[in-house]
Design a protein around this nucleic acid. Structure first.
Lengths: 159, 159
DNA sequence: ATCTCATTCTTCGACATTCGAAATCTCCTG
DNA sequence: CAGGAGATTTCGAATGTCGAAGAATGAGAT
Protein backbone atom coordinates (compact mmCIF):
# COMPACT_ATOMS: atom_id res chain seq x y z
CA UNK A 1 0.00 0.00 0.00
CA UNK A 2 1.48 3.32 -1.03
CA UNK A 3 1.89 6.19 1.33
CA UNK A 4 -0.72 8.20 -0.53
CA UNK A 5 -3.20 5.40 -0.19
CA UNK A 6 -2.57 5.18 3.53
CA UNK A 7 -2.99 8.90 3.89
CA UNK A 8 -6.36 8.64 2.21
CA UNK A 9 -7.32 5.81 4.51
CA UNK A 10 -6.32 7.86 7.52
CA UNK A 11 -8.55 10.70 6.32
CA UNK A 12 -11.39 8.25 5.93
CA UNK A 13 -10.65 6.71 9.30
CA UNK A 14 -10.84 10.08 10.97
CA UNK A 15 -14.21 10.73 9.42
CA UNK A 16 -15.53 7.36 10.51
CA UNK A 17 -14.26 7.92 14.03
CA UNK A 18 -16.10 11.20 14.09
CA UNK A 19 -19.29 9.39 13.15
CA UNK A 20 -18.73 6.84 15.88
CA UNK A 21 -18.38 9.56 18.46
CA UNK A 22 -21.56 11.06 17.20
CA UNK A 23 -23.31 7.71 17.42
CA UNK A 24 -22.16 7.25 20.99
CA UNK A 25 -23.42 10.68 21.99
CA UNK A 26 -26.70 9.93 20.31
CA UNK A 27 -27.00 6.66 22.21
CA UNK A 28 -26.21 8.34 25.50
CA UNK A 29 -28.75 11.09 24.87
CA UNK A 30 -31.42 8.55 24.00
CA UNK A 31 -30.64 6.43 27.05
CA UNK A 32 -30.88 9.44 29.34
CA UNK A 33 -33.84 10.92 27.50
CA UNK A 34 -31.93 14.15 27.04
CA UNK A 35 -31.40 16.23 23.94
CA UNK A 36 -27.87 16.78 22.71
CA UNK A 37 -27.56 20.22 24.18
CA UNK A 38 -28.56 19.05 27.63
CA UNK A 39 -26.12 16.16 27.33
CA UNK A 40 -23.31 18.57 26.52
CA UNK A 41 -24.24 20.63 29.54
CA UNK A 42 -24.22 17.50 31.69
CA UNK A 43 -20.75 16.65 30.37
CA UNK A 44 -19.51 20.06 31.39
CA UNK A 45 -21.04 19.77 34.83
CA UNK A 46 -19.49 16.35 35.32
CA UNK A 47 -16.04 17.29 34.11
CA UNK A 48 -15.86 20.35 36.34
CA UNK A 49 -15.55 19.31 39.91
CA UNK A 50 -16.73 22.59 41.29
CA UNK A 51 -20.03 24.00 40.17
CA UNK A 52 -20.29 26.26 37.14
CA UNK A 53 -22.25 29.48 37.14
CA UNK A 54 -25.16 29.78 34.75
CA UNK A 55 -23.21 32.35 32.81
CA UNK A 56 -20.14 30.13 32.49
CA UNK A 57 -22.34 27.33 31.30
CA UNK A 58 -23.88 29.67 28.79
CA UNK A 59 -20.46 30.62 27.45
CA UNK A 60 -19.21 27.05 27.37
CA UNK A 61 -22.29 25.88 25.49
CA UNK A 62 -22.27 28.95 23.25
CA UNK A 63 -25.90 29.41 24.03
CA UNK A 64 -27.81 32.53 24.96
CA UNK A 65 -28.47 33.11 28.65
CA UNK A 66 -32.15 32.53 27.98
CA UNK A 67 -31.55 29.14 26.40
CA UNK A 68 -29.17 28.21 29.18
CA UNK A 69 -31.83 28.89 31.76
CA UNK A 70 -34.08 26.35 30.12
CA UNK A 71 -31.23 23.86 29.80
CA UNK A 72 -30.70 24.10 33.54
CA UNK A 73 -34.44 23.82 34.10
CA UNK A 74 -34.57 20.60 32.13
CA UNK A 75 -31.55 19.07 33.85
CA UNK A 76 -32.99 20.06 37.19
CA UNK A 77 -36.31 18.48 36.34
CA UNK A 78 -34.45 15.34 35.27
CA UNK A 79 -32.75 15.25 38.66
CA UNK A 80 -29.29 15.61 37.13
CA UNK A 81 -28.40 19.12 38.20
CA UNK A 82 -29.17 21.48 41.01
CA UNK A 83 -29.16 25.25 41.38
CA UNK A 84 -27.30 26.83 44.26
CA UNK A 85 -27.06 30.51 45.08
CA UNK A 86 -23.49 31.70 45.02
CA UNK A 87 -22.85 32.72 48.63
CA UNK A 88 -20.42 35.42 47.52
CA UNK A 89 -22.64 36.97 44.89
CA UNK A 90 -26.31 36.39 45.09
CA UNK A 91 -26.90 37.42 41.51
CA UNK A 92 -25.04 34.36 40.39
CA UNK A 93 -26.56 30.91 40.22
CA UNK A 94 -24.22 27.96 40.52
CA UNK A 95 -25.16 24.74 38.81
CA UNK A 96 -23.84 21.46 40.13
CA UNK A 97 -24.18 17.83 39.11
CA UNK A 98 -26.31 15.80 41.48
CA UNK A 99 -25.56 12.36 42.85
CA UNK A 100 -27.80 10.93 40.12
CA UNK A 101 -25.56 12.63 37.57
CA UNK A 102 -22.50 11.07 39.19
CA UNK A 103 -24.16 7.70 38.85
CA UNK A 104 -24.69 8.41 35.16
CA UNK A 105 -21.01 9.23 34.92
CA UNK A 106 -20.04 5.94 36.53
CA UNK A 107 -22.46 3.86 34.49
CA UNK A 108 -22.04 5.47 31.09
CA UNK A 109 -18.84 7.44 30.80
CA UNK A 110 -16.26 5.73 32.97
CA UNK A 111 -16.49 2.39 31.11
CA UNK A 112 -15.55 4.19 27.92
CA UNK A 113 -12.31 5.37 29.46
CA UNK A 114 -11.59 1.92 30.80
CA UNK A 115 -12.23 0.25 27.46
CA UNK A 116 -10.16 2.87 25.71
CA UNK A 117 -7.23 2.37 28.04
CA UNK A 118 -7.40 -1.39 27.55
CA UNK A 119 -7.45 -0.99 23.80
CA UNK A 120 -4.34 1.17 23.93
CA UNK A 121 -2.46 -1.18 26.21
CA UNK A 122 -1.09 -3.21 23.33
CA UNK A 123 0.82 -0.34 21.77
CA UNK A 124 4.44 0.37 22.52
CA UNK A 125 5.50 3.66 24.02
CA UNK A 126 6.85 4.73 20.66
CA UNK A 127 3.59 3.92 18.93
CA UNK A 128 1.64 5.83 21.55
CA UNK A 129 3.94 8.78 21.03
CA UNK A 130 3.20 8.65 17.31
CA UNK A 131 -0.53 8.52 17.99
CA UNK A 132 -0.32 11.42 20.37
CA UNK A 133 1.61 13.43 17.86
CA UNK A 134 -0.90 12.62 15.18
CA UNK A 135 -3.76 13.78 17.37
CA UNK A 136 -1.96 17.03 18.00
CA UNK A 137 -1.23 17.58 14.32
CA UNK A 138 -4.77 16.71 13.28
CA UNK A 139 -6.17 19.14 15.76
CA UNK A 140 -3.89 21.88 14.56
CA UNK A 141 -4.91 21.30 10.97
CA UNK A 142 -8.59 21.41 11.87
CA UNK A 143 -8.17 24.57 13.92
CA UNK A 144 -6.24 26.30 11.16
CA UNK A 145 -8.86 25.34 8.64
CA UNK A 146 -11.65 26.52 10.90
CA UNK A 147 -9.89 29.83 11.24
CA UNK A 148 -9.50 30.07 7.49
CA UNK A 149 -13.18 29.37 6.95
CA UNK A 150 -14.21 31.89 9.56
CA UNK A 151 -12.03 34.50 7.90
CA UNK A 152 -13.26 33.72 4.42
CA UNK A 153 -16.60 35.50 4.88
CA UNK A 154 -18.00 33.11 2.39
CA UNK A 155 -21.11 34.23 0.61
CA UNK A 156 -23.15 32.22 -1.80
CA UNK A 157 -25.10 35.30 -2.89
CA UNK A 158 -27.55 33.19 -4.75
CA UNK A 159 -30.68 35.26 -4.40
CA UNK B 1 6.45 9.80 30.62
CA UNK B 2 4.87 6.52 31.72
CA UNK B 3 2.64 4.53 29.45
CA UNK B 4 -0.36 5.27 31.62
CA UNK B 5 0.27 8.94 31.37
CA UNK B 6 0.52 8.73 27.60
CA UNK B 7 -2.71 6.78 27.45
CA UNK B 8 -4.43 9.51 29.41
CA UNK B 9 -3.01 12.10 27.08
CA UNK B 10 -4.27 10.19 24.10
CA UNK B 11 -7.75 10.11 25.61
CA UNK B 12 -7.56 13.84 26.15
CA UNK B 13 -6.20 14.35 22.64
CA UNK B 14 -9.10 12.48 21.16
CA UNK B 15 -11.57 14.63 23.04
CA UNK B 16 -9.84 17.81 21.92
CA UNK B 17 -9.80 16.62 18.33
CA UNK B 18 -13.51 16.01 18.57
CA UNK B 19 -13.99 19.59 19.70
CA UNK B 20 -11.89 20.85 16.82
CA UNK B 21 -14.03 18.98 14.35
CA UNK B 22 -17.07 20.48 15.94
CA UNK B 23 -15.56 23.95 15.75
CA UNK B 24 -14.79 23.48 12.08
CA UNK B 25 -18.32 22.36 11.33
CA UNK B 26 -19.65 25.31 13.25
CA UNK B 27 -17.45 27.68 11.27
CA UNK B 28 -18.53 26.13 7.98
CA UNK B 29 -22.20 26.34 8.94
CA UNK B 30 -21.83 29.97 9.93
CA UNK B 31 -19.96 30.85 6.76
CA UNK B 32 -22.62 29.22 4.63
CA UNK B 33 -25.48 30.48 6.76
CA UNK B 34 -26.76 26.95 7.18
CA UNK B 35 -27.78 25.08 10.27
CA UNK B 36 -25.87 21.94 11.22
CA UNK B 37 -28.47 19.59 9.83
CA UNK B 38 -28.46 21.25 6.45
CA UNK B 39 -24.67 21.20 6.44
CA UNK B 40 -24.68 17.45 7.09
CA UNK B 41 -27.09 17.02 4.21
CA UNK B 42 -24.84 19.08 1.98
CA UNK B 43 -21.88 16.89 2.95
CA UNK B 44 -23.81 13.82 1.95
CA UNK B 45 -24.82 15.34 -1.37
CA UNK B 46 -21.24 16.33 -2.08
CA UNK B 47 -19.68 13.02 -1.15
CA UNK B 48 -22.11 11.04 -3.29
CA UNK B 49 -21.34 11.64 -6.91
CA UNK B 50 -24.72 10.53 -8.09
CA UNK B 51 -27.82 12.15 -6.64
CA UNK B 52 -29.50 10.77 -3.55
CA UNK B 53 -33.21 10.23 -3.28
CA UNK B 54 -35.09 12.14 -0.64
CA UNK B 55 -35.69 8.88 1.20
CA UNK B 56 -32.02 7.96 1.16
CA UNK B 57 -31.17 11.37 2.48
CA UNK B 58 -33.77 10.92 5.18
CA UNK B 59 -32.22 7.63 6.24
CA UNK B 60 -28.68 8.96 6.12
CA UNK B 61 -29.59 11.96 8.22
CA UNK B 62 -31.76 9.89 10.56
CA UNK B 63 -34.48 12.43 10.09
CA UNK B 64 -38.17 11.94 9.41
CA UNK B 65 -39.29 12.23 5.78
CA UNK B 66 -41.14 15.39 6.72
CA UNK B 67 -38.08 17.04 8.18
CA UNK B 68 -36.03 15.94 5.20
CA UNK B 69 -38.41 17.69 2.86
CA UNK B 70 -37.77 20.96 4.64
CA UNK B 71 -34.01 20.34 4.64
CA UNK B 72 -34.13 19.97 0.87
CA UNK B 73 -36.34 23.05 0.64
CA UNK B 74 -33.79 25.10 2.52
CA UNK B 75 -30.83 23.84 0.50
CA UNK B 76 -32.75 24.49 -2.67
CA UNK B 77 -33.58 28.02 -1.57
CA UNK B 78 -29.88 28.52 -0.76
CA UNK B 79 -29.03 27.43 -4.28
CA UNK B 80 -26.99 24.46 -3.06
CA UNK B 81 -29.22 21.59 -4.09
CA UNK B 82 -31.72 20.83 -6.78
CA UNK B 83 -34.66 18.46 -7.04
CA UNK B 84 -34.90 16.17 -10.03
CA UNK B 85 -37.62 13.68 -10.78
CA UNK B 86 -36.26 10.18 -10.99
CA UNK B 87 -36.91 9.27 -14.64
CA UNK B 88 -37.35 5.60 -13.71
CA UNK B 89 -39.76 6.20 -10.86
CA UNK B 90 -41.64 9.41 -10.74
CA UNK B 91 -42.58 8.97 -7.13
CA UNK B 92 -38.97 9.45 -6.20
CA UNK B 93 -37.24 12.80 -5.96
CA UNK B 94 -33.54 12.89 -6.54
CA UNK B 95 -31.53 15.57 -4.83
CA UNK B 96 -28.28 16.71 -6.35
CA UNK B 97 -25.62 19.22 -5.41
CA UNK B 98 -25.61 22.26 -7.65
CA UNK B 99 -22.61 23.93 -9.19
CA UNK B 100 -22.69 26.43 -6.32
CA UNK B 101 -22.39 23.50 -3.93
CA UNK B 102 -19.39 22.20 -5.87
CA UNK B 103 -17.83 25.59 -5.48
CA UNK B 104 -18.40 25.36 -1.75
CA UNK B 105 -16.71 21.99 -1.82
CA UNK B 106 -13.69 23.40 -3.60
CA UNK B 107 -13.44 26.48 -1.43
CA UNK B 108 -14.15 24.98 1.96
CA UNK B 109 -13.67 21.23 2.03
CA UNK B 110 -10.91 20.41 -0.42
CA UNK B 111 -8.31 22.60 1.32
CA UNK B 112 -8.88 20.59 4.47
CA UNK B 113 -7.92 17.40 2.71
CA UNK B 114 -4.88 19.04 1.17
CA UNK B 115 -3.69 20.43 4.49
CA UNK B 116 -4.32 17.08 6.14
CA UNK B 117 -2.33 15.22 3.54
CA UNK B 118 0.53 17.67 3.89
CA UNK B 119 0.51 17.28 7.63
CA UNK B 120 0.74 13.51 7.31
CA UNK B 121 3.53 13.60 4.76
CA UNK B 122 6.22 13.65 7.43
CA UNK B 123 5.28 10.30 8.91
CA UNK B 124 6.87 7.05 7.87
CA UNK B 125 4.80 4.26 6.42
CA UNK B 126 5.10 2.38 9.69
CA UNK B 127 3.88 5.35 11.67
CA UNK B 128 0.96 5.83 9.32
CA UNK B 129 0.09 2.18 9.76
CA UNK B 130 0.08 2.67 13.52
CA UNK B 131 -2.17 5.70 13.18
CA UNK B 132 -4.51 3.84 10.91
CA UNK B 133 -4.68 0.95 13.33
CA UNK B 134 -5.36 3.31 16.19
CA UNK B 135 -8.22 4.93 14.31
CA UNK B 136 -9.72 1.52 13.67
CA UNK B 137 -9.36 0.46 17.30
CA UNK B 138 -10.77 3.72 18.59
CA UNK B 139 -13.76 3.39 16.36
CA UNK B 140 -14.37 -0.14 17.50
CA UNK B 141 -14.24 0.89 21.14
CA UNK B 142 -16.68 3.72 20.55
CA UNK B 143 -19.06 1.50 18.64
CA UNK B 144 -18.96 -1.18 21.31
CA UNK B 145 -19.62 1.35 24.00
CA UNK B 146 -22.46 2.88 22.03
CA UNK B 147 -23.98 -0.57 21.71
CA UNK B 148 -23.58 -1.17 25.42
CA UNK B 149 -25.28 2.11 26.25
CA UNK B 150 -28.11 1.43 23.84
CA UNK B 151 -28.64 -1.97 25.43
CA UNK B 152 -28.50 -0.68 28.97
CA UNK B 153 -31.99 0.84 28.88
CA UNK B 154 -30.79 3.35 31.37
CA UNK B 155 -33.44 4.99 33.44
CA UNK B 156 -32.95 7.73 35.94
CA UNK B 157 -36.46 7.24 37.35
CA UNK B 158 -36.21 10.43 39.29
CA UNK B 159 -39.76 11.65 39.29
C1' DA C 1 -27.00 56.66 53.13
C1' DT C 2 -28.74 56.55 48.70
C1' DC C 3 -28.52 56.97 43.86
C1' DT C 4 -27.12 55.47 39.64
C1' DC C 5 -25.19 51.95 36.67
C1' DA C 6 -23.43 47.49 35.54
C1' DT C 7 -23.95 42.48 36.14
C1' DT C 8 -26.48 38.15 36.38
C1' DC C 9 -30.17 35.46 35.68
C1' DT C 10 -35.10 34.72 34.33
C1' DT C 11 -39.43 35.66 31.79
C1' DC C 12 -41.76 36.58 27.59
C1' DG C 13 -42.97 36.50 22.71
C1' DA C 14 -41.42 35.13 18.23
C1' DC C 15 -39.13 32.07 15.05
C1' DA C 16 -36.93 27.74 13.38
C1' DT C 17 -36.63 22.76 13.37
C1' DT C 18 -38.56 18.46 14.08
C1' DC C 19 -42.10 14.88 14.33
C1' DG C 20 -46.42 11.98 13.37
C1' DA C 21 -50.37 11.62 10.67
C1' DA C 22 -52.95 12.50 6.68
C1' DA C 23 -52.87 13.64 1.78
C1' DT C 24 -51.11 13.15 -3.01
C1' DC C 25 -49.20 11.05 -6.68
C1' DT C 26 -47.13 6.98 -8.83
C1' DC C 27 -46.00 2.20 -9.39
C1' DC C 28 -47.00 -2.66 -9.34
C1' DT C 29 -49.93 -6.87 -9.02
C1' DG C 30 -53.71 -9.60 -9.80
C1' DC D 1 -58.10 -1.40 -14.35
C1' DA D 2 -58.82 -1.70 -9.32
C1' DG D 3 -56.55 -1.93 -5.10
C1' DG D 4 -52.65 -1.77 -2.31
C1' DA D 5 -47.89 -0.41 -1.51
C1' DG D 6 -44.27 3.13 -1.90
C1' DA D 7 -42.25 7.98 -1.96
C1' DT D 8 -42.74 12.47 -0.98
C1' DT D 9 -45.16 16.57 0.67
C1' DT D 10 -48.44 19.15 3.56
C1' DC D 11 -50.32 20.16 7.96
C1' DG D 12 -50.60 20.88 12.95
C1' DA D 13 -48.31 20.36 17.27
C1' DA D 14 -44.27 20.11 20.24
C1' DT D 15 -39.61 21.52 21.35
C1' DG D 16 -35.50 24.46 21.43
C1' DT D 17 -33.46 28.77 20.60
C1' DC D 18 -33.00 33.74 20.42
C1' DG D 19 -33.42 38.91 21.50
C1' DA D 20 -35.36 42.11 24.42
C1' DA D 21 -37.36 43.44 28.56
C1' DG D 22 -37.67 42.64 33.59
C1' DA D 23 -36.04 41.70 38.39
C1' DA D 24 -32.61 41.24 41.79
C1' DT D 25 -28.03 42.23 43.40
C1' DG D 26 -23.51 44.42 43.71
C1' DA D 27 -20.24 48.46 43.30
C1' DG D 28 -18.86 53.06 42.98
C1' DA D 29 -19.82 58.13 43.52
C1' DT D 30 -21.59 61.84 45.75
Amino acid sequence: MSKNEIVREVAMGVRLLQQSFDAFDEAAATALKLNRTDLRALDLLLSDDDALSAGELSAALKLSPAATTTVIDRLERAGLAGRIQDPHNRRRVLVAATEAARKVERDIYLPVGVAGAEALAGYTIEQLATILDFLRVARQVQDEQATRVRASRYQSDHA
